[in-house]
Simulated assay, not measured.
Amino acid sequence: MMDTANGATDLTGKLLIAMPGMGDPRFEHSVVYMCAHSDEGAMGLIINKPSGDVTMAALLDQLSITAEPGLDLKHVHFGGPVEMGRGFVLHSPDYMSGLTTLQVDPRFSMTGTLDVLETIARGEGPAHWLAMLGYAGWGPGQLEAELTQNGWLVCDATPDLVFETPDLGKWEAALNSMGIPAHLLSAEGGSA
């Protein structure tokens, strides 16, 4: 992990775990995979909030992409409140777009172009992936301020936690990876 120019820790490739009482209902119990973090701001994707009504098959149909069977069971995720009409795929590094794949670290890549959806639709895409609409974004210093105010915990991202853990269990699993039982967290601050 590198430091940014202002001395803050670079969170690229890490998970942010929303603390109870954060105050923003869009991030309640969210787990955010950090795709980029620098002095210029940060960008991440919420990995544990599937859309209740948008399946991959429906999204592909809307984009006039013919899908292989089975994608009607896979939901598109709410990636965050910024540019909700824009799509992203967080995936394993076994796929590389000729256009715009960002290799975040050796275990995770992110592609925001239609070619990744076309390969997934053909059953030829990455072995592991999550499709998102929108992303979570922070301006310069904004995420650092939220961290200082105890809005987020930071933990290591693993492919198993990101891609294999059921969405509803990711928040608690991320906390458990840090040795923190979820029931011990409180939305109320206190003093001893």
Rank of each mutant, 00 (worst) to 15 (best):
T101A: 05
L133D: 03
P126M: 10
V104H: 00
W171C: 02
T12V: 04
G112E: 06
G137D: 04
G98D: 08
D10P: 03
T55S: 13
H77Y: 12
G123N: 07
Y135N: 06
I47P: 06
L60G: 11
Q149F: 07
L63N: 13
L143I: 11
L153N: 03
G179H: 01
T113M: 11
P25T: 15
M2K: 15
S191F: 14
R107D: 14
M84S: 07
M34Q: 09
P159T: 08
K14M: 15
T113W: 04
G23R: 07
M84A: 05
I120Y: 00
G98A: 11
A57L: 03
T111S: 10
V162D: 00
L133V: 11
L153H: 05
D115G: 04
T119N: 10
Y135P: 02
R122D: 09
S191D: 12
E164Y: 00
L117V: 10
E164A: 14
H37D: 09
G134Y: 01
V154N: 09
G23E: 06
D105L: 03
T101G: 07
L168W: 11
T100Y: 05
P20M: 09
E40R: 15
F163H: 07
S191L: 13
M178Y: 00
P69R: 07
T165A: 00
F78N: 08
I46W: 01
M56F: 11
E118S: 10
P181N: 06
S30F: 03
L15T: 02
Y135K: 05
L90S: 01
S64K: 15
G70A: 04
E144N: 11
A57D: 05
L153K: 07
M96A: 12
N176L: 06
S186R: 12
A157V: 00
D115F: 12
G23V: 11
I120D: 05
A42V: 01
